[in-house]
């Protein structure tokens, strides 16, 4: 009971009173400021829980090694030959795979009650989610750097040079940010992390494997070619491959930006609609 230290208790109460007496009401910050503040939170979480970087390093290393050596000899005659083709694609796949963790992270926030605290603040409502996705961009960048480094070790020589590689990564980050809204929506609709993971895998597997990441689609049956043609991941891979390879990306960049905008428009809106009253 507080009788144990009555003076200390009084002291504390008066400090609370003076803390409450603060009538300071700073100017409300804008959407960009609050989004970046939430991005800072995501970085702080990486600092305190560095284990969450395991997936962004292990996934790309595993995929790159596995597919380079599994398919390299059969598909392109040599692994060095194949890695020239595969690396931009596997870079895209690695990042897309780890975007789905956004959904489970958000679900944890909802379950722990942090999310409701944020929703109760007088700020631009999407900023908690935008900031989360911005923080994830840091994880995606790490994944991309790991893949690029490993690729260079395996003999990948991008003709687009550092600028081409950087532009390719940038385009990938834009797409990953947009795809993140699919997972935020799922995590507001589905009630458990397991369900979110399950549905995410169902979406991601056809998106990545049903694309031009691993092989040239010209050998595929017609119906699969048709899917690969409309798959936004294919356009992204085409554009990233061209930017990094120093060739003409054609309409790949425009198509990727259009599909990114569409993802944000559709799933961003759905997310914010659910965000008002998530249960």
């Amino acid at each position: 009971m507080s009788v144990a230290a009555p003076t200390a208790q009084k002291h504390e109460t008066s400090k609370i009173l003076s803390a409450l007496a603060s009538t300071e009401r700073p100017e409300p910050p804008g959407p960009i400021s609050t989004s970046f503040t939430f991005g800072w939170r995501a970085l702080l979480k990486i600092k305190h829980v560095p284990e969450q970087l395991v997936d962004v390093t292990i996934f790309p290393i595993m995929f790159t090694l596995l597919f380079t050596f599994l398919f390299g000899g059969a598909l392109a005659g040599s692994t060095v030959e194949y890695v020239q083709f595969l690396l931009p694609g596997i870079l895209v796949q690695g990042v897309i795979m780890i975007t789905m963790y956004t959904g489970t992270t958000l679900r944890t926030d909802i379950e722990k009650g942090v999310f409701d605290r944020f929703r109760s603040l007088p700020i631009w409502r999407p900023s908690a989610l935008v900031g989360m996705l911005l923080g994830d961009a840091a994880r995606f960048t790490i994944s991309a750097l790991v893949t690029i480094t490993l690729g260079l070790i395996l003999g990948w020589r991008p003709q687009g040079g550092p600028v081409g590689v950087a532009l390719g990564v940038l385009l990938l980050l834009v797409f990953a940010f947009s795809l993140g809204w699919v997972w935020t929506f799922l995590s507001l609709v589905l009630r458990t992390s397991n369900a979110i993971m399950g549905v995410s895998m169902l979406v991601i597997t056809p998106l990545t494997f049903g694309s031009n990441i691993f092989v040239d689609p010209s050998t595929m049956p017609g119906w699969l070619q048709a899917f690969v043609e409309v798959n936004p991941v294919s356009h992204l891979v085409t554009a990233v491959r061209a930017l990094m390879g120093g060739t003409d990306p054609g309409n790949g960049i425009v198509l990727t930006l259009v599909s990114s905008a569409a993802l944000v428009a559709v799933f961003g809106s759905l997310t914010m609609w659910r965000y008002r009253d998530p249960r």
Binding site: P29, S33, T34, W40, K45, H48, K112, R117, F118, L121
Partner: peptide, 27 residues
């Protein structure tokens, strides 16, 4: 403002970081 079973702070962050986070969000 609210506090309770449903409005909590981020367990992964320190106490100081949590308060700074809210402070920044208030401008």
């Amino acid at each position: 403002s609210l506090t309770g079973q449903f409005a909590s702070v981020d367990e992964d962050l320190t106490g100081r970081e949590n308060l700074r986070l809210i402070g920044r969000l208030f401008g």
